[in-house]
Amino acid sequence: MTTAARAYGPSTLTLGLHRGVIELKAFFREWDAVVFTFALPVVTLVLLGSLISGVYPGSDVTSAQYLAPSMIAAGVAATTFVNLGTGIAGDRDDGTLKRLRGVPMPPAAYFLGKTVQTLVVVAAETVLLLAVGVALFDLRLPTEAGRWLTFGWVFLLGVVACALLGIAVSSVIRSARSAGAVTQLPYLVLAFVSGIYFTPVSALPQPLLVLGSIFPLKWMAQGFRSALLPDTILGAEAVPDWEHGRTALILAAWCIGGLLLCLTTFRWRGRRQR
């Protein structure tokens, strides 16, 4: 190690990656949280996929296959926005964040560590959902590299945006007891207005389509459908185009906005702590 490296210490990126490893170890030690985190989107996909039926006109895509990419987006949002907001509120209540603030770690490293932990968990959850879609609903995975590239950048932007929003929303939660209610309500509302549980999306009322298009969940679900489903299903979308450019722009804007919210509103101490 050079003299300059010793003087300046590890970078924020290095500290964030190390923090991510710690967060992952803590997560996988809580087996009940692990089981329910992975089970929720899988059970929802199995139940809804078994209840709905039919093939969309002009395509051989079934309703269950159309639902699968949307449920991947819902799983990303639940694991990031809901779980992160709830978990950080608990850390703030029990004094964990207060102790972390006492160590020489930049705030950005903490956010990065949370994002790394979430990225790994959501990646595993996504693989599981894809496997369920293939096994139970004959979801045909794409063979073109371009579609997997689309899936990759939508996944990364969506995870980062929702994770940062989950960290930001934790600042408005007054206590760990109210965390679930504060995070679940906006998540469920956005899931419905984004067309997650409503097929086809084009059947949603116009005001709900406009409202859903403001937030990242709608674009994440649309991006996943564009990667996993054939173009013959475009008639079921609100606009007969996958709108990749707009999807990337809106998800990136939410990443930037979420980071700014974290840096300006995040509280290391609870309202009752001194």
Rank of each mutant, 00 (worst) to 15 (best):
T2P: 05
A7P: 03
Y8W: 09
P10G: 13
T12I: 14
T14H: 14
L17G: 07
H18D: 13
I22T: 12
E23T: 08
K25L: 08
K25E: 10
A26S: 15
F27S: 06
F28W: 10
R29M: 10
V35F: 11
F36Q: 10
F36M: 12
T44K: 08
L48M: 15
G49Q: 05
G49F: 09
S53D: 12
P57K: 00
S59Y: 02
D60K: 10
A64E: 05
L67D: 05
P69E: 07
M71Q: 11
G75W: 00
V76D: 02
A77M: 13
T79P: 03
F81A: 05
G85S: 08
R92T: 07
D93Q: 14
T96E: 11
T96M: 09
P104S: 14
M105R: 14
A108L: 15
Y110N: 14
G113D: 08
G113T: 07
G113L: 06
T118V: 07
L119W: 13
L119P: 02
A124D: 02
E125G: 07
T126M: 07
L128V: 12
L130R: 01
A131H: 01
V132M: 10
V132G: 06
V134G: 05
A135G: 08
A135L: 15
F137A: 02
F137D: 03
F137G: 12
R140G: 09
T143A: 14
E144S: 13
L149S: 06
L149E: 08
W153L: 08
F155M: 13
G158I: 01
A161R: 13
A163P: 01
I167C: 02
S170P: 00
V172N: 01
Q184M: 12
P186F: 04
V189G: 09
V193W: 00
V193D: 03
V193I: 15
S194M: 13
G195Q: 00
G195A: 12
G195H: 01
I196M: 13
F198V: 15
F198A: 09
F198H: 08
V201N: 03
S202W: 00
L204D: 06
P205V: 05
L211F: 11
F215N: 02
K218G: 00
A221R: 06
R225S: 15
R225P: 03
S226T: 13
L229D: 11
P230R: 11
D231L: 11
G235E: 13
A236C: 08
A236S: 14
H244D: 12
A248Y: 01
L249G: 13
L251S: 05
A252Q: 07
A252Y: 05
L259W: 09
L260T: 06
L260Q: 00
T265V: 02
G270E: 04
R272A: 13
